[in-house]
Amino acid sequence: MSWADLGLPDAPEPSGNETPAPRPRKEPKPPKEPKPPREPKEPKPPKTPKPPKPPRESGGQGDGEGGSRTPLILGIVAGVLLVAVVVTLGFALTRGSSTASPADTPSSDASTAAPTAQPSPSPSASSDAVGVPVALKFGGTGFTLVDKNAKTVFSYEWRDKAADAVTELTAAFGAAPTQRVEPGDGSSYPDYTVYQWEGFLLYDMVDGTGGAQRATFTQPSYATFSRNEVGPISMTAEHGLKIGSPVTAVRAAGPSQDVPRGNVGSIRFIFDQSRSSVGPPVQYSMIADTDGSTVTAVLYYFAAGG
């Protein structure tokens, strides 16, 4: 299709020497006029505060809120505050001056301060308690285990049965005794069970032997020692005599009788012979055996003929 077919003139043929016409320059746009400044808006008038709602009157059971709770809450708060004040006041009063800090306490010179009265010690319940035995004391009616304050730990009389004494002496001496039977004469003198520790012997009659009865026999038991200490226990006789005391001291103690013994030079000294009796209670004399120069043994025995 050509321009002629369209009813249009033929387009001119461009020549090679023709220069295209320059494009027309666009006119610059005129500057926009500045917008006038906005006028400030008028401030809105302050809102008028709404009047407070009147307190709701307390209603009956059908009221949803159950009436105003404000008085109840205020009452509870006031009660709690009152309790807190009372507790605080009571605590402050009971503490007294103990809450004062060291800085608030006036210092005083220890040399000029008045001495503080010390409370007198109250008697202790243990002051009457009996301690462990330290000595075995002999007398006319028997022997006694005593503690360091001379309080009686255990006491034995000659007519007592020996079982308890053996138990107590075993504990005190720290060792059990050996045991044997010493036969009597078969007619009037009974057999004796002998409880023997190293340095101490306790003789206890076998009731009914030799026709003797413990309840009436003159010598139901007796004792002898040949050491001043048996284990941790000191042996304490009367008249201040000990094993090893010289014969001169024995004579000076005033014996009732002295009897020569089978060994050459040995002498038996009998003290308090007149107190030997069947009692009650049974009483014995004290006997000091010597080798002629010193005491070798002490016996508590029934010494007839005083």
Rank of each mutant, 00 (worst) to 15 (best):
A117F: 06
V134P: 00
A129R: 06
V146W: 03
V87A: 14
G79L: 13
A113S: 14
A114S: 10
L81N: 06
G66V: 08
G131M: 00
P54E: 13
A114D: 05
T144C: 02
R69Q: 13
A103T: 12
P71D: 06
P71L: 05
F143L: 15
P55M: 03
R95C: 07
G67W: 04
S97I: 05
A84C: 14
K137A: 02
R69T: 12
P106L: 14
A113G: 02
A117V: 14
F138T: 09
D109F: 00
A110Q: 10
S98A: 13
P46S: 00
V130E: 00
S127D: 13
V85K: 00
A100V: 13
K47R: 14
R56W: 00
V146F: 03
T99D: 15
A78H: 07
G90N: 09
S124W: 00
A113P: 00
S124F: 02
G62F: 15
V134D: 10
P55E: 01
A135L: 02
G62T: 14
P115A: 09
P51I: 01
T112Y: 00
T70H: 09
A110F: 06
T99K: 14
G64H: 09
P45S: 07
R56K: 14
P52V: 00
T144K: 11
Q118G: 04
G96C: 10
P133D: 01
D109A: 09
S58A: 13
P46A: 04
G79F: 14
L93H: 08
F143E: 07
P52W: 00
S107N: 11
A125R: 08
G59D: 03
S126C: 03
G66C: 04
A135D: 03
A103E: 15
